[in-house]
């Protein structure tokens, strides 16, 4: 699993590549937790995530709660159909703002609140 983090203006864009499962979650979690600050605007680019296990979904929900607690915003972009289906049917999707393309997600995060 590769984690690429870059700043685009106020938005922290995190690109994930590979499989988000029980073996990769601890490292990803550590990297992402380091990005959570007051009012953070976080965009997770999931376009290159091929597979996500229960551990991955739990990581996302836990991250969402942390961002929420700090008054920030979290947006997911590029969920594959199977991952979106899994998230929908298990109820995880309801917590997230999810968009198809990177620019859609950027627009939402860059919009004045």
């Amino acid at each position: 699993m590769k984690v690429h983090i870059e700043k685009r203006g106020e938005v922290t864009v995190v690109g994930l590549t590979g499989e988000l499962d029980t073996t990769t979650v601890p490292e990803v979690q550590a990297r992402l937790n380091g990005e959570v600050s007051d009012g953070v605007k976080l965009l997770l680019d999931m376009r290159k995530v091929r597979y996500m296990s229960s551990a991955g979904l739990r990581l996302l929900l836990s991250l969402y709660r942390k961002v929420q607690a700090r008054g920030g915003d979290l947006v997911l972009v590029g969920l594959s159909d199977p991952i979106r289906d899994t998230m929908e049917v298990t109820g995880f999707l309801t917590f997230f703002q999810a968009y198809e393309g990177l620019e859609d997600g950027m627009r939402v995060l860059e919009a004045p609140r």
Binding site: S53, S54, L57, T86, V89, T90, G91, F92
Partner: peptide, 13 residues
């Protein structure tokens, strides 16, 4: 989501 072992979450949802 049985193949992912997520039946607990799916049923709770």
């Amino acid at each position: 989501t049985g193949p992912l072992g997520m039946q607990i979450d799916e049923f709770k949802n």
